[in-house]
Amino acid sequence: MERQEILDTMNLVMTNKGREPITDETVATRDANFRSLDFSEVALRIETKLGRELTFDAAAMRNIDTVKDVLDFFEKATA
């Protein structure tokens, strides 16, 4: 999946919850107020778009610090 499409999905999750959209990849997810359950929601929205399940360990989620890490993660997971 394209990076921009993943970012759009993240921002859909953010704005649905009344939060500011993310514009800077280098920002820490914590500072962007993007929480671990938001990560899961993005995964589920991507699953719906792709029509297949994405399964991964919680360890993979724990290693995510920045928005760039989220984008890298989903780019790889959907490749």
Binding site: S40, A43, L44, E53, L54, T55, F56, D57, A58, A59, M61
Partner: peptide
């Protein structure tokens, strides 16, 4: 186990 249920496959 080290996976949230929604991200765990049925085989696991």
């Amino acid at each position: 186990q080290d996976q949230l249920l929604m991200h765990t496959d049925l085989d696991t």
